[in-house]
Design a protein around this nucleic acid. Structure first.
Length: 810
RNA sequence: GCCCGGGUGGUGAAACUGGUAGACACAAGGGACUUAAAAUCCCUCGACCGCAAGGUUGUGCGGGUUCGAGUCCCGCCCCGGGCACCA
């Protein structure tokens, strides 16, 4: 054997990557996309191109998705597998600040490096249809989407709190606030109110929730989405203000406990706080409100701190008891949920109970559990089921019936109504930052906020050398006078551009619509191509995006459908979340210094080995533990496969090997579409062991199908072996997935376990068509079985055909 | 606190719908081939008892259902991830 016949992964991979690029094996022309017979859009979450390059987690995810795409391609589908770069955002911006470079210079270098690495891993990417969210040709259409939603009445400008670091003089994202302090300078973070742009996603809450059950998505992801939307059924109830006009409206899920509402609590920011506050309480209320405003948003939401609050001096009337109850303010009531005000029922809500205990407010029982009555003392809130007590004419009703009856009563009197509330709140898309697409709006003193005309898109992000945040509290763009000074598109008067940029999540909320039409500059997405290729057939990505990215993508898709731009409302027919890779039992992180460097691994073993190993580690949807030594297994496997194909002769396949082959094809064919890659690979290893058992010489017909089956995992070596088996064209362009023959997969003899009283005593071999009597005879003929049966009566026999016989004796 | 995962040999992990636990692989040990090494091939490999045949035991813990439980039910413990005062 000459040295050129040794498995040289590097040479093989170089050769085939060049071949694919030269022949355009994985790229589609517009015409090809339009004419595809069986389109299959295989999408994976595009990466943020960091300066460090692809990490093993990216590679794991992309490989798993690529295996999926290559499999369907071999099954005859036209698989479109694009990749792009999600390059805007705070990560790039902060990193650029840290190293003192402009992100506009940094990103192209990172993209180039990522492209090199992705190519090197052997992904089946169509590089003629890629996107870069920072390219004006892309973000022009991100801005277009903003405008379309604006025109559709789905965008609104309103004040909202942001985290503010008084020392860095900048707005912070929630994750930049650590323990109430700025992560960079440890200064206490405050809240500031700024006008921001919102997408009214909450209008879609019901549809977003209802559609979930129709989606073929990972269960965990669907549950996360449902929880995030957080539907809760209850009622809104008016508590009229004593000695004043109007009422305070609250949302409650427990209208049945209304008789137990002994006080009320408003969020400190609630608009009625001012009018409810009496002169005597004014100072304390103002003081408390200032303190709350000072705290950052993250700290505000901590649940484990002691309840605080102050009395406003005002009273409202409980619509059921007619009694006046005091109105307090406290930071445990949030302005953004419900109506920003609650009726407190300390007897049956733990938070209210704690608050009432701290401030000595009355606690009343209005629900009695079985065995309790109206006078049973409460030492904590009781939130279980039971019957109403201390509730006038509603006494004796169940919780369920009480809810209905009290809501009906309130409705009759015009004091309340049934109401469904959602946790999901509107999407704030404003970022007081530099590295993002400028929001395409103009502020005119006369006309107010005016959208930039479509014909003037893109609103280019100017190159700004000094994009460090300053104390203005607004985007760095607000310092670039030459940029923000403009004229009003409506009245031509002097105007000022919106200087905030949009959220990165907006960039990624529509990129899948762009890919097929990435080469079009006249439209964001071609109508025909979109109809043909979307919704996405398969989407694979991390569970860290299970909520926001997927939710926003669904929302944008729904909105675009309602606006008449597309004819479907769910973007991803199928979604699967992949697991995480850990290293020797511990999480990988830069600080631990245990990050696996993919380039070094590929240098040593080749991309094919790395791909197979990553997919072999554990179930793809659960992740796995990367162990350095383990890679030897897959590497040896590919080496043996190589050797076996080169050594193969033309003798007809051995029947025993052939049976195993068909069983293997069956298993692998079933498991790959379900992402059960680890066991599919194990089956192929097992088969190759049979082919090579005892050092026998493999036959060509025994190994040729294995070359095809390993191709999704190890595409380069598969191509090379396919060629050496005598084919001229690329395997992926010409080969078809092997088909198994059920008859040939069937075993002639079956191994049946024999139990006596549930304990395994023997295994007997019987003909595949043996009936129960035959199995029983064979079992009783077995010494070890008769040992346990002799002298006893067989009371019962359970026979699982072809598998197991259990004799119950006694 | 709540919602998801998960807990099986020395290790990563398999196990269809309740039916022969530990496939496949790593590591370890032994052997063949070789001048040697590499590569390749073969054997052993949960624990305990036994020369063996075989037996007992074993899937985080405690109960239960069943002819039969890693798998189902009830009650716990531990690990990982996400959400978190949501009224």
């Amino acid at each position: 054997m000459s040295s050129t016949d040794r498995y040289d992964a590097e040479a093989v991979e170089r050769k085939w990557q060049a071949e694919w690029a030269a022949k355009g094996t994985n790229a589609f022309t517009k015409d090809e996309l339009e004419r595809a017979d069986e389109p299959y859009y295989n999408l994976m979450m595009f990466p943020y191109p960091s300066a460090e390059g692809l990490h093993i987690g990216n590679i794991y995810a992309f490989t798993g998705a690529d295996v999926h795409g290559r499999y369907w391609r071999l099954q005859g589908k036209t698989v479109f597998e694009p990749i792009g770069f999600d390059a805007f955002g705070i990560h790039s911006e902060n990193y650029a600040l840290k190293v003192g470079t402009n992100p506009a210079d940094l990103i192209p270098r990172n993209v180039e490096n990522f492209t090199r690495q992705l190519t090197r891993m052997g992904g089946m990417y169509d590089w003629t249809h890629t996107v870069d969210t920072t390219d004006p040709k892309y973000y022009r259409w991100t801005q277009w989407i903003f405008l379309k939603l604006y025109q559709g009445g789905l965008v609104e400008r309103r004040n909202a709190p942001v985290n503010w670091c008084p020392s860095c003089k900048t707005v912070l994202a929630n994750e930049q606030v650590v323990g109430g302090l700025c992560e960079r300078c440890d200064t206490a973070v405050e809240q500031r109110q700024l006008p921001q742009w919102f997408f009214k996603i909450s209008q879609y809450a019901e549809r977003l929730l209802d559609n979930i059950e129709k989606l073929d998505w990972s269960d965990t992801t669907r549950k996360a989405q449902a929880n995030w939307i957080g539907r809760s059924e209850g009622a809104e109830v008016d508590f009229s203000i004593q000695g004043g006009s109007g009422a305070v409206r609250v949302f409650t899920t427990r209208p049945d406990t209304l008789f137990g509402a002994t006080y009320m609590v408003l969020a400190p920011e609630h608009p009625l706080v001012d009018s409810l506050t009496t002169a005597a309480c004014r100072a304390a209320v103002d003081d408390y409100r200032t303190q709350v405003a000072k705290r950052d948003l993250v700290e505000r939401k901590k649940t484990d701190k002691e309840k605080t609050g102050v009395f406003t001096g005002g009273y409202c009337i409980n619509p059921m008891t007619g009694k006046a109850i005091p109105v307090w303010i406290a930071d445990y009531v949030l302005m953004e949920y419900g109506t920003g005000a609650i009726m407190a029922v300390p007897g049956h809500d733990q938070r209210d109970f704690e608050f009432a205990t701290v401030f000595g407010l009355p606690i009343m029982r209005v629900i009695a559990a079985p065995g309790e009555d109206a006078n049973t003392a409460l030492d904590s809130a009781y939130d279980g089921d039971g019957t109403l007590v201390n509730s006038g004419r509603f006494d004796g009703a169940s919780v369920e019936a009480g809810k209905r009856a009290i809501v009906a009563d309130l409705a009759k009197r015009g004091a309340g109504e049934a109401k469904v509330n959602y946790r999901l709140h509107d999407w704030c898309v404003s970022r007081q930052r530099y590295w993002g697409p400028p929001i395409p709006m103009v502020h005119c003193e006369r006309c107010g906020a005016v959208p930039v005309p479509e014909s003037e898109l893109p609103v280019l992000l100017p190159r700004v050398e000094d994009f460090k945040p300053d104390d203005s509290g607004v985007s760095p763009l607000a310092r670039v006078k030459s940029w923000y000074e403009t004229t009003c598109p409506q009245c031509q008067g002097p105007a000022r551009r919106e200087t905030d940029v949009s959220d990165t999540f907006l960039d990624s909320a529509w990129y899948f619509l762009r890919y097929p039409s990435a080469d079009r500059d006249d439209v964001p997405f071609d109508a025909e191509l979109t109809r043909k290729w979307l919704p996405v057939h398969s989407y694979i990505g991390g569970n860290e995006h299970a909520v926001l990215h997927l939710m926003y993508s669904r929302f944008v898709t729904m909105a675009l459908k309602d606006l008449g731009f597309i004819d479907f409302e769910e973007p991803f027919a199928k979604f699967r979340a992949h697991g995480l890779i850990i290293n020797e039992g511990t999480k990988m992180s830069k600080s631990r210094g245990n990050v696996i460097v993919p380039d070094a691994l590929i240098d040593k073993y080749g991309a094919d080995t790395v791909r197979v190993y990553l997919m072999f580690l554990g179930p793809f949807e659960q992740g796995g533990d990367y162990r350095d030594q383990g890679i030897q297994g897959p590497h040896g496997f590919l080496t043996r496969l190589w050797q076996s194909v080169l050594d193969a002769n033309d003798v007809a396949p051995d029947p025993v090997v052939e049976r195993k082959l068909h069983q293997t094809i069956r298993q692998v064919t079933e498991q790959i579409p379900n992402l059960q890659y680890n066991t599919a690979i194990a089956a192929m290893m097992e088969y190759l062991n049979v082919v090579r058992a005892g050092g026998r010489t493999p036959r060509r017909a025994e190994v040729a199908p294995l070359v095809l089956m390993i191709a999704p995992f190890a595409p380069h070596v598969a191509e090379e072996l396919y060629q050496r088996l005598g084919h001229n064209e690329s395997l992926f362009a010409s080969a078809r997935w092997p088909v198994f023959d059920e008859a040939k997969a069937a075993d002639a003899l079956l191994d049946v376990g024999v139990q006596v009283n549930g304990k395994l005593r023997a295994r007997v071999q019987v003909a595949a068509d043996a009936d129960e009597a035959a199995v029983r005879a064979a079992a009783l003929a077995n010494d070890n079985v008769s040992r346990f049966v002799d002298g006893k009566t067989i009371r019962k026999a359970i026979y699982v055909p072809g598998k197991l016989l259990n004799l119950v004796v006694g």
